[in-house]
């Protein structure tokens, strides 16, 4: 098996497949990370992905425009984020429960809208792979990273963007301050509510992108429950990545490349019981988490609603 794996062709196939599979996790987990950095735990990621997957698909199906599909998918996610922000920031509801409520809303709503509008599985011509000039000709790297569709590139570009925003801009400083000590941010004239709204809505938009990628970038069709639990994995990847863009990238890639590897192992007919194969990504991710030395430092105010203390 090792020999087969070391053949360049196999490795490229597995890594390229891993990059494709990592994309939805990357979108969703980066978005969730930004929300959590501001102190809001949003468990509605999976439902948001489903609803955006549907709206993006439907608009693309009806209009034939992928760009319009992406726009609507992102706006749908933003709207879901707005709902979460109203409930958890303004109304200060318990965040875990509100997030699960949001998830169930997205799940039910996407089922319902699909039934009412399309009613049967349909397909669209989704995003086509777009080779990046020059870079795609690089050995190995070119085939692994630079022959995908535009949404895949976007997801990977958003990693350094998220890093720069969080750690190199005044906005990022405000976000981290609000997530660590909202009282302190408030006394410095930072609007805790404003920052949390912004972050949760951006997080929703990125979940929306994740769903959009599923329906018009990867599957090119819409089916009920299209995420199959990916949103929950994305939330876990935020913890795995220790609220850091590079960590989230590492977690998404590890999980997805191992998944691609187990698919490859099955396809090559290598004698491993399939149950073990499908468990591999989960087991390895947990093992990696257990062996990572640094202690997890979650934002101190995560999942705590903020209210100016009364005298």
């Amino acid at each position: 098996m090792i020999n087969e794996l070391l053949k360049e062709g196999a490795l490229i196939l597995i890594l390229a497949s891993g990059v494709r599979l990592a994309t939805p996790y990357l979108f969703a987990a980066l978005g969730e990370m930004i929300g959590q950095r501001s102190g809001v735990l949003n468990l509605g990621v999976d439902g948001t992905m489903m609803l955006s997957a549907f709206t993006a698909f439907y608009v693309t199906f009806a209009s034939g425009s992928l760009a319009l599909g992406v726009l609507v998918g992102v706006l749908t996610g933003g709207l879901m984020g707005l709902i979460m922000a109203v409930v958890s920031v303004t109304m200060r509801a318990e965040q875990g429960i509100s997030g699960i409520g949001l998830h169930l809303f997205g799940l039910g709503m996407s089922n319902l809208l699909f039934r009412l509008s399309l009613g049967a599985i349909s397909t669209v011509e989704g995003f086509r792979p777009l080779s990046v000039p020059i870079l795609s000709d690089l050995p190995v790297i070119g085939a692994v990273f630079f022959r995908h569709n535009v949404l895949v590139y976007l997801a990977f570009v958003l990693v350094p963007v998220a890093w720069v925003v969080l750690f190199r801009t005044p906005l990022g400083l405000k976000i981290r301050a609000v997530g660590e000590n909202p009282q302190a941010a408030d006394t410095l004239g930072v609007s805790v509510t404003g920052i949390r709204y912004l972050c949760v809505i951006i997080g929703g938009m990125m979940s929306g992108l994740a769903g959009t990628y599923l329906s018009i970038g990867l599957n090119n069709m819409y089916v009920d429950n299209i995420t199959n639990g990916m949103g929950w994995i994305a939330v876990a990847l935020v913890y795995f990545g220790r609220w850091h863009p590079w960590g989230v990238l590492a977690g998404s890639l590890l999980f997805s490349v191992v998944n691609a590897l187990q698919i490859w192992v099955q396809v090559r007919g290598i004698a491993i019981p399939y149950e073990f194969a499908v468990m591999m990504p989960y087991v390895l991710t947990i093992v990696a988490l257990a062996f990572a030395v640094r202690r997890a430092q979650q934002p101190a105010a995560l999942s705590k609603p903020y209210e100016r203390a009364e005298a």
């Binding site: 400083l173 981290r176 000590n181 009282q183 302190a184 941010a185 006394t187 410095l188």
Partner: peptide
Amino acid sequence: HFMLIPPL
């Protein structure tokens, strides 16, 4: 109570 953010 100091309004500081320890990780920064």
